[in-house]
Design a protein around this nucleic acid. Structure first.
Lengths: 222, 222
DNA sequence: AGTTCATTCAATAGAATTATTGAATGTATT
DNA sequence: AATACATTCAATAATTCTATTGAATGAACT
């Protein structure tokens, strides 16, 4: 990622270089995971390191690489350095790359198919539909992310039922249709939650997209 | 780019790996240049090699790398192998990455500023506006790409004035406003053409985007 | 069959990326 | 000032990526 000075005389080359720097910064699974976390809100280096299970120094370097590419920005807050996505365009780029992968890679399909047998069942609830049904009080929205992430911001009206606790809290969820969400479109926790709930006879669906998409759509958070 | 088997047991990791493969394939200036050419239509390996000025074997390898990532597809046609973008989503991803680079990188800005002093002058003509004015016959549209690229497909009604020939063909262009386009949003040939035309006193503007964008918008080609 | 040409393959060296380690820096707290 | 803690820096080895070369393959043409 070292690119001390991009200074080809050929301006066309220089442009492609700049674009490549951005794509290169996205071209690493660890960094993509970091972006997915940052999409939910600003985070400090060690919170991120804990979440993704990497050494702090390693995460710090990845974050700096992304900062050089313009994907993230950082500000010091006391002892901590909070990183955040620099722009909504970063999420768009992530989504666009995901779209390419979805169309091509049979592997991506198959990962998702692992949780669902029939295609119909995968159909998620749209944000607009969910917003409407929440207003009518017809639906229980569960946030299946870990409690610490929930605490840092969540969909207005959602209750936190971390995936690990789902088993023991089924009685809370009786009676209404359930919509589960988590970090983003391919966050597997919501897939697992829906699969488990259906096995117990609940009527459960996934929200289309995760928290970042909800927030970007201007829908209420708390 | 070698990734013989992506088979982490962790499905989350596997997904990020897949997404990273796509981004990585976009993370190289040469490959981005190839994509820009392929965005105009299917091309054979050696046509591409001539355009980008790289050894054929090298181009072939880049194309294969992109094929593995799902960015391009290929079909044999007699002696030739024609590569093409596999999907419109590839162009979206390219555009999204470009958008990130534009917002962040002062360098990208400065490359463009090299051709124009004032920001107002950079404002391009939208596709819709141009389509309307062409219908009224008010405007001369010039395609400043090399003749061979023009021959493989161009905007309906455009005339081909390769940048290299612009000097000698000014009298053809007298009388009407000129709109220039070339390969894509950052293709510098149209910037140069407009700058040169203005120096000679012509009223000239750039088309917003290039040929691929026009085609994607469903506007007429020939 | 032999020739020509486009493409791919295989092997290589050089460059860049990544994870890891431990030391250094900077900021709050006592 | 001394400590604790979060982050960054610097150096390293392992891996991966890239360009280059020349040989091999595949399809058309004589």
């Amino acid at each position: 990622m070292a690119k001390p000075e991009v200074s080809t005389c050929n301006p066309k080359q220089a442009l492609y270089e700049q674009f490549a720097v951005v794509a290169k910064a996205l071209g690493n699974p660890q960094r993509l995971e970091l972006i997915e976390h940052l999409a939910q809100g600003p985070r400090s280096v060690d919170v991120l390191a804990n979440k993704v299970g990497l050494p702090i120094a390693n995460v710090s370097q990845h974050l700096q690489a992304m900062r050089r590419a313009g994907l993230v920005a950082s500000e010091r807050e006391g002892k901590f350095v909070k990183y955040r996505l620099s722009d909504a365009s970063v999420l768009s780029a992530f989504a666009a790359i995901r779209a390419v992968a979805e169309r091509h890679s049979a592997e991506v399909e198959s990962v998702v198919r692992g949780w669902f047998d029939r295609h119909d069942d995968m159909e998620p609830v749209s944000r607009e539909e969910l917003a409407g049904r929440m207003a009518e009080g017809l639906v229980t929205v569960i946030d299946v992310r870990p409690a610490d992430e929930f605490a840092l911001g969540h969909l207005a009206g959602a209750i936190n039922v971390p995936l690990a606790e789902l088993d023991g809290r089924l009685q809370e969820l009786q009676g209404r249709e359930i919509v589960a969400y988590c970090r983003g479109p391919w966050c597997v926790m919501s897939f697992e939650a829906v699969a488990e709930l259906r096995e117990r006879g609940f009527s459960a669906r996934r929200l289309d997209g995760g928290l970042p998409e909800w927030q970007m759509a201007g829908l209420p958070m708390e």
